[in-house]
Design a protein around this nucleic acid. Structure first.
Length: 425
RNA sequence: GGAGAGGUGGGAGAGUGGCUUAAUCCACUGGUUUGCUAAACCAGCGUACCUUUACGGGUACCGGGGGUUCGAAUCCCCCCCUCUCCGCCA
């Protein structure tokens, strides 16, 4: 969330930022509540100070044999007043907090202003050697390929769970596992991350910490009986690893990479765009998460993007980097690059990764701080994350790009030591 | 799921209604002293919020939330977590 002090001092900047994200701003209400809140605090704390000082006098008076009935009665009245103010204060603070939790993060100044995805900016494009987006070849799409080669079973997935729960079969399952292991190993060996294998169910606090709650509740699965949420991304448990902690300056940056299954309800998004892997309720993802010092976070964002790109270069899958405009930016993000991989069958780019800088937005919600050696007061870290990458979308591009004219799939070179086979037929 | 024990400041640990709005020790930071280091001694030592131009002042926080009381770490109620034993189980 945003700092209430910052909102108080820069209401116009805040309003402008929220509007650029196409969200309604209720900043004037927030400021109103904030003012009421502070007025009450001043009053109630004054009373509490009186209560404390008188209370400490009472035992002394008793000892001296003085009559305390008048003071006691007076203090009873003070206590009642305090209770009244406290109740009122709690109501206001709850209301204020609820509103603050729904205010999105502000876009960074380097983010292009725009209404929606159409105004995103393509930053760069990478194609494997000799590859062309224009092709006369006939491409089967990943659903057809998966069916023909018996490696993906969407129908049976729908039978056992529902639509959007794909089953990987035979070499398809092995390929998926290979992909996950390859990506993890690559980030561990070529980049320096610490591996985390987190819980896939988290509590409400964690979901609030990274910003999925309260706003995105409809898109989250929820296990009512235990008040737990299946994670929509490993970002949630990994970022929350250090919730309510004060780290040392030299502990930073913290760079984590972890695999998890991801669960998303994707409420209201059935139809064409949901074919096969394009929109699923459960998928696998390797996620990178960083906790960094504020002054380094925008450099680190570029690093995360480049770390994700390295995977695609190694796999030789065509991709492009897209800088999201303000209108397409997610609730918690200040700046975000999407990485899109090429689907020759769909003849379009598919989002396979999203790399974001959240600045101190999540850190403030989750209270993740660090202390500079020279300075005493703890500061919020900046948090970032990026998919490195989501296997579902990646699998679409991989299968389609690596299909041969015979309808078989060639396994990318770098994956072969993980799969143990070089062709799927 | 059942029974029991426990959760206090960075760590250890005291504290069962007001001479404690948390003792003491260790760690940490600064200082004094001493050829150097160490030791010793002195001082400081958390987080959040409110207030103040500033120096400063105030309030809250002893797992979380309620309650009793003029006053709660301490008493009462609910919840969470950890540990031990039993049961069940991949």
């Amino acid at each position: 969330m945003l700092d209430i002090k910052y909102i108080r001092e820069n209401p116009d900047k805040v309003k402008k930022g929220i509007e650029a994200k196409n969200e309604k701003n209720r900043i004037d209400e927030v400021l109103q509540l904030d003012e009421e809140r502070r007025e009450i605090i001043v009053q109630v704390e004054k009373l509490k100070a009186i209560k404390n000082s008188v209370s400490s006098q009472i035992p002394k008076m008793k000892k001296a044999g003085e009559d305390t009935t008048a003071v006691l009665a007076e203090m009873k009245e003070v206590s009642n007043q305090i209770n009244g103010f406290d109740t009122k204060l709690r109501d206001i603070e709850d209301k204020l907090n609820d509103m603050l939790m729904l205010i999105p993060n502000l876009p960074h100044e380097s983010v292009p202003v725009g209404k929606n995805a159409e105004e995103n900016v393509v930053v760069r494009e990478w194609l494997p050697e000799g590859f062309s987006l224009e092709s006369d070849k006939k491409f089967l799409d990943h659903v057809e390929l998966g069916k023909k080669l018996n490696i993906l079973d969407f129908e049976r997935g729908a039978k056992i769970s529902g639509s959007g729960f794909p089953v990987y079969m035979a070499k398809g399952a092995t390929l998926e596992r290979a992909l996950i292991n390859f990506m993890l190993d690559f980030h561990l060996n070529e980049h320096s991350y610490t591996e985390v294998l987190p819980p896939f169910l988290v509590n409400r606090e964690s979901m609030k910490g990274t910003g999925q709650l309260p706003k995105m509740a409809e898109d989250m699965y929820y296990i009512e009986k235990d008040d737990l949420y299946p994670i929509p991304t490993a970002e949630v448990p990994i970022t929350n690893l250090h919730r309510k902690e004060i780290l040392n300056e030299n502990d930073l940056p913290k760079s984590y990479v972890g695999y998890s299954a991801c669960f998303r309800r994707e409420a209201g998004s059935y139809g064409k765009e949901a074919k096969g892997f394009l929109r699923v309720h459960q998928f696998n993802k390797v996620e990178m998460v960083k906790l960094v010092k504020p002054e380094t976070s925008y450099d680190e964002l570029e690093n995360i993007v480049s770390d994700a790109e390295d995977i695609l270069k190694a796999l030789k899958i065509p991709y492009r980097i897209v800088l999201l405009c303000t209108g397409d930016l997610s609730f918690s993000a200040s700046k975000c690059y999407d990485i899109e991989t090429w689907s020759p069958a769909e003849n379009k780019w598919l989002e396979a990764s999203s790399c974001s800088n959240f600045e101190d937005f999540q850190a403030r919600r989750a209270s993740i701080k660090f202390r500079r050696e020279s300075q005493k007061k703890p500061e919020f870290v900046h948090t970032l994350n990026g998919s490195g990458l989501a296997t579902s979308r990646l699998m679409v591009s991989l299968l389609e790009n690596y299909q041969t004219t015979k309808g078989t799939i060639e396994v990318p070179e770098v994956l072969r030591k993980y799969t143990g086979f070089s062709i799927i037929d």
